[in-house]
Amino acid sequence: MKREVPLVLTFVMTLLRFGFEMLNPMLTYEISEGVRLFSRISFSVTFMYCMGLFMGLINLTRVHGNTIRRRREHWIYSVWLLIVMYGYAILGLFFGGMESKPFTWIYDAVIVPLDSTMFSLLAFFIASAAYRAFRIRNVESVIMMVVAFIVMLGNVSLGEVLWSSEAFLGGFKGLKDWFLATPNAASQRAIGIGVFLGSYAAILRVALGLEKRYLGGID
C-alpha cells in the first residue's frame, strides 16, 4: 500500500497535467464562479513547495547544530550561518516585512554583491580551466583551440581592432557569427532533440510506474 498509492497518484497526476496542457475544457474548467481547477492545482503545488522549505530549514539546523555541539572544525561558521539564516527570516517575518528598509538594504548591499562576486569567480576559473584543457594533443584539439580563439576575438572590441568586420570574411566577428549561427546552432538543436527524447522516455517510465526511485528505493 505504501508503494501503490504514490504510483497511482503519479499516474493520475500525469494524466491530469497532460489534460491541462492539451484540452481546452480542462484548462478553463471552473469549480465555482471565477475559480478555475487549474489555478487551484497550481496554487496547491506552490503551497507544497513552501511547506517543503521547512525540511531544508530543519536539515540545515540539524547539520550545523551537530557541528556546533561537537565542536567540529570551523564550527564558528555554522554559528554564523544559523544567526544569518534565522536573523534574516525573523527580520522579514516580524519587522516590517519584505519591503522594510533593513530587509531590502541587506538584499541590495549584501546579497546582490555576494551573488555577483560568486558569479565573477567564473572569469578566474574559466582562465585556469582553459589553460589546462586547451593543449594541442591532436587534430581535434587544434580545431577546438582555433575556433575558441576566433569566437573570443569576435566577441570583444580587441578582435575588431585586429581584424575589422569591414574586412575580408567579416573579420573575426564575421567568422564568429558564422560559427555560432551555423555549426553551433545545428549541433545545439540536435542535442536538444536528443535531450527531449531522453527526457520524454524518462517521464513515461515514471508515469507508468517502471521507475520508482522517487519513493526512496534504490532499484
Binding site: Y49, G52, L53, F54, M55, G56, N59, R213, Y214, L215, G216, G217, I218
Partner: peptide, 17 residues
C-alpha cells in the same frame, strides 16, 4: 542539495543503499 524535497528522497536512497 539545493532543493529540499529532492534532498529528502536522496537521503532515503542513500539510507536504503
Amino acid at each position: 542539495n539545493s532543493e529540499w524535497l529532492t534532498m529528502t528522497v536522496n537521503e532515503e536512497i542513500i539510507r536504503q543503499a
